[in-house]
Every structure is written in structure tokens, then in C-alpha cells.
Simulated scan of single mutants.
Amino acid sequence: MRVLIAPDKFAGTLTAVQAAEAIATGWRRHAPGDELDLAPMADGGPGFVDVLHAALGGSLAAVTVRGPHGEQVPAAVLHVGETAYVESAQAAGLHLLSGAASESPETASSWGVGELVLAAVSAGARKVVVGLGGSGTTDGGAGALGALGATSDGVLDGGPAGLASVTSVELSAARERLSGVRLVAASDVDNPLTGLFGAAKTFGPQKGIAEDRIADVDALLEGFATATDRRTSLEKGAGAAGGIGYALLALGATREPGIELVAAAVSLADRAKAADLVVTGEGAFDFSSRAGKVPYGVAGVAGEALRPCIALAGKVLVGAREMRALGIESAYALVDLVGEERAMRDSADALAELAQRAARTWSR
């Protein structure tokens, strides 16, 4: 039996590569004769550059950029010919927020993402693909714009709190600096910048913004959009990565679903056709997975190839009906098998056990 293993990362515990290897380890315990094809995936969030490097080759250039609160953080630019790939989470990721009282999520800046784009362009890239997802910022991409040369009468590098002083933004210098470069925003969500489904309302709480501050932060983003480019703030993907998507779109970027971009890079459709079963997974499998997440994207490719798809996850938070709507035949949860504590502590071993259990049902 041929099994295609195409998981996302298990946030906070396993990279996509580690997750794929753990699933393969467990599957082989029950079905050592099965032919396993490992295709680690990403949707634009953490792991985007590593997954593409494994699939496309190219060269990684190490750079140092500004983190959300001004600290220097390591990052990498993947160069494949004249195309460069960068990952916003490396410069502005949720994992970079310390939680210190002096480092409020309302002062977290995306400045380092602009520095990553500049590093790619300075090295000769004519196309820069920016993976969006997993950010700890909600500044509408103001910091990234500032790093790229945008100017304002207010503070662009102070997180959403700094936007209170912004009444006008000039993008001409940033656009000039990127002249002749094609920008692509690889987004895992299609939310607008502001409003009920905007960056603050939808993603602010997970970044530490207090519930009673969400409306105020949304209003700050609304004012920033009015000062910069109101129409673009309504576009799909503008709310990605706390609004870094908006900054890129305002500079003329095109938007591509991150999962589709990665699927094409790893030739997922052809590999699914060659398989008998597709296995995907992520940390939390819930109905939000439909919004551009890896399991939904992988299941869609499996469906087009007329192959069944199952999911292994840390938690499964959907019922059978919702699961079918996402294109998943069956889903298995780590916490149901080993409990939450061990699922977090021994993630690789626990995931291998879960894969072994799934193989008992699905392997011929």
C-alpha cells in the first residue's frame, strides 16, 4: 500500500518535518511493507521556508532582523533562482513574544518583516514570496512598511499603540525601493484588516490583546487604513499576520493561498495520485481549518485524486459531519489516546503511537 504523509506543524511541539517522520515511524510499526511518501506541508506560517527548502532546494541566507519589541532575532531568506521566500513568523512570530509586562502585544511591531523583504531584494531577488501566519503582531503591517521606506507623521514602529499618532502615510519611497520586484503574499487566511472578521477581532486574543481592548485596537487599524489605503484594507488576506498582508497588498503584492503555493512546490497532486491513502494533520483540527489551513488543502488535493484522506491531530474539535465537509474521512486525536500532558511532553512518540493505531484500520 502506498501512503502519502502530508502534515502541517504541530504548533509548539513538532515541525512539519518532525511530524511527518513521527507518523511514518508509527505507521511502519504496524505496516512495515507499506510504501511511505513524506511531504511535510505549510500554509505560510512557521515552517514555510524549511518546507520549501526541502522541496525546492536553493540556498538559505542567514540574516538578523528586528523582533517584535526591538530585539535582534535570527531569520533566513531562501533563494531559488531569482525568487526569494521569507517567513513573517521568523521576524514577528507569536513565539517571539516574551509575555513581559514591559512588552505589551499592543506595542509589538512587524518592522523585521520589512527587513526580511529588503534582505531578499538586496540579494538580487526579482520575486519575493512572504509566508504569512503565526504572527504575534497586530500593527496592520505598519512596521514592515516603515522598514521598507514608508513615512508617516506618526509612529509606524510602535505596534497598534503607535498608530494613534498616525494621520497620513506616504508609500512612494517603499514602492520605489521595490520597483521591478514582484511581491506575493502567501496567506493562510482571507480575513480583511478590520471589522468583525478583521485582524484584531479574530486573532488579537491569541496574541495577548485583552478582550476589552479589541475594539480599540480595531479602531486604531481602521484609522491607519484610512491614512494609508482604505480600499485595500477590505481585500481578502489583508488581515493575515496581524495586517502584514495589508501592508504587502498596499505595495502591490498579489495574494496566493499559502497551502496552494506549497502544494504546487512539492508536486502534491501528482504524489496523491500515486498513493492509495493520504494522511495529513496539525496541532488542532477544527472548523477553522477550512480557512486555508493544511488539512483542508491536502484533503482537497486528495479528493481531486479520488483518494481517501485521514487526519492525525493534537486535538480534534469537529464532529463527523464537519469532518466530511472538510474532506476528511476520519480523524484521530493525540489527547484522546495519551492525554494532554503526554501529547505535549512526548509529542513525537505519542504521534507515532497514534499513527500506528490509524494504520491498523487503514493499511491493507
Results as ranks from 00 to 15, higher is better:
Ala343Asn: 06
Gly141Ile: 03
Ala89Glu: 06
Ala227Pro: 00
Leu220Asn: 10
Gly131Pro: 06
Gly57Asp: 04
Thr167Leu: 02
Arg307Asn: 09
Val51Arg: 04
Gly134Asn: 04
Pro205Thr: 08
Glu21Asp: 07
Asn191Thr: 07
Ala225Asp: 00
Arg2Gln: 11
Thr151Val: 10
Ala101Arg: 11
Ala61Leu: 09
Val279Thr: 13
Leu220Trp: 15
Leu249Trp: 14
Ala320Pro: 14
Pro32Thr: 12
Ser347Arg: 14
Ser104Glu: 12
Gly204Ile: 08
Leu251Phe: 08
Val181Pro: 05
Gly245Thr: 08
Ala123Tyr: 11
Arg29Met: 05
Leu52Trp: 09
Gly44Met: 10
Ser168Arg: 09
Val169Thr: 02
Ala325Gln: 14
Leu96His: 05
Lys293Tyr: 14
Ala164Gly: 02
Ala250Gly: 13
Ala144Cys: 02
Lys236Pro: 12
Val166Trp: 00
Arg290Leu: 15
Asp190Ser: 14
Ala144Asp: 03
Glu103Ser: 07
Arg307Tyr: 11
Thr25Ile: 09
Glu256Gln: 11
Ala125Tyr: 00
Ile310Tyr: 13
Ala302Phe: 08
Ala199Asn: 06
Ser122Met: 14
Pro46Tyr: 10
Leu221Gly: 11
Ser122Thr: 15
Thr254Asn: 15
Leu277Ser: 11
Ser187Ala: 13
Pro105Tyr: 03
Ala123Ile: 13
Arg345Lys: 13
Ser98Val: 02
Gly319Gln: 05
Ser152Ala: 04
Ser233Phe: 00
Val169Met: 00
Val3Ile: 09
Ile23Met: 06
Gln206Ser: 08
Asp153Val: 01
Ala173Arg: 02
Pro40Leu: 04
Gly303Asn: 12
Arg255Asp: 09
Gly245Asp: 04
Thr254Gly: 14
Pro7Asn: 12
Gly158Ser: 00
Ser330Leu: 14
Phe48Asn: 01
Leu196Trp: 15
Glu256Ser: 08
Leu306Gly: 15
Asp190Trp: 13
Gly258Tyr: 04
Val301Tyr: 15
Val80Ser: 02
Glu35Cys: 06
Gly180His: 09
Arg345Ala: 12
Leu277Lys: 10
Phe287Arg: 15
Ala125Leu: 08
Ala320Val: 13
Pro257Ile: 06
Glu106Ile: 07
Glu87Thr: 01
Ile23Thr: 06
Arg271Asp: 02
Gly131Thr: 07
Arg321Pro: 15
Val262Lys: 06
Gly45Pro: 05
Ala147Ile: 00
Leu97Gly: 03
Ser267Met: 10
Glu211Tyr: 14
Leu178Ser: 05
Gly300Pro: 12
Val86Asp: 02
Thr228His: 05
Gly198Trp: 01
Ala185Gln: 11
Asp270Leu: 06
Val217Lys: 12
Ser233Trp: 00
Glu282Gly: 10
Phe285Tyr: 14
Val65Cys: 00
Val129Gln: 09
Phe203Glu: 04
Gly57Tyr: 04
Ala219Ile: 12
